[in-house]
């Protein structure tokens, strides 16, 4: 009981202490606000520039979620295709790998030229999708391959067709893998979106990365911190929501990972 209370209270106390120390040390060592602003100054930014920051956060979040949804859908669909046809897997998987191993930041300028700077939002969407796509594909493919061979035999024995085998056996077997990949993809979609916004480096994208660039150029360090804070909160929220979905779907039969 005491341990449980400590496990909640201790991290909060530590966090509050660190913030307090930050505030105090900036004053004590007379650190310039364009090097390190105190937490109070960062909070104050939300009063002056709150509307524009939240608007940008909304933009970035929108592209991230759209790219994430696209990645989950397309990654799962391609993995299903791979599972049903080895030829398709052999022919297509190299391209998926190439797309994955080439750094997003290096592809970004090309994509931006292709879609045009006026459509920078589309470039951001495409790049965030590329970043998030591969973990979904890889985990779904691994999951679909991890089906218990005895169960597969059983389905064959009872003359299950591909559709029955896929829905009743392969999808549920691969769910733990797929959800782990999806959790990673959520964070990567955000990373991809921000990287693409930086590469576009244009007010056209109007996302949080643009606010950071803009504030950096004007040495508004507190505003940069405020934007960073929003990005971190978004990432954490995404991860928390996806973890919760994973728990909802798996905890009954997979929770303690005991063998069945």
């Amino acid at each position: 009981m005491l341990m449980q209370v400590l496990r909640i209270i201790l991290p909060i106390a530590l966090f509050a202490g660190l913030i307090q120390f930050w505030e105090w040390s900036v004053v004590y060592w007379e650190i310039q606000p364009f090097i390190l602003p105190p937490p109070s100054a960062i909070l104050a930014v939300f009063e002056t520039d709150g509307a524009s920051l939240l608007g940008s956060a909304w933009t970035t979040l929108g592209t991230t979620l759209a790219a994430f949804a696209l990645a989950v859908f397309s990654g799962t669909a391609l993995a299903a295709l791979f599972a049903s046809s080895r030829i398709a897997e052999a022919a297509l998987s190299p391209y998926a790998v190439i797309l994955q191993v080439t750094p997003i930041i290096a592809i970004a300028p090309l994509i931006i030229v292709w879609v045009g700077l006026d459509n920078a939002w589309l470039a951001v969407l495409i790049l965030a999708w590329i970043a998030a796509f591969f973990p979904v594909l890889a985990s779904a493919t691994a999951g679909l391959k991890a089906v218990d061979p005895n169960l597969r035999d059983l389905f064959r024995l009872y003359r299950a067709d591909f559709r029955q085998t896929f829905i009743r056996l392969m999808v549920p077997s691969s769910l733990p893998y797929l959800l782990a990949g999806i959790k990673t993809a959520g964070g990567l979609a955000l990373v991809g979106a921000v990287v693409a916004e930086f590469a576009a480096a244009s007010g056209n994208t109007n996302g949080l990365a643009w606010r950071i660039l803009e504030a950096g150029n004007r040495l508004q360090i507190a505003k940069m911190f405020a934007a960073l804070l929003l990005l971190a909160l978004m990432g954490v929220a995404l991860y928390a929501i996806l973890s919760f979905v994973e728990w909802l779907l798996l905890h009954r039969w997979h929770g303690d990972r005991r063998r069945a």
Partner: peptide, 14 residues
Amino acid sequence: LGVIFQEPTLMAWA
């Protein structure tokens, strides 16, 4: 046919 494998071979989610 009915088959019983060495493992129970059950669907863990069902």
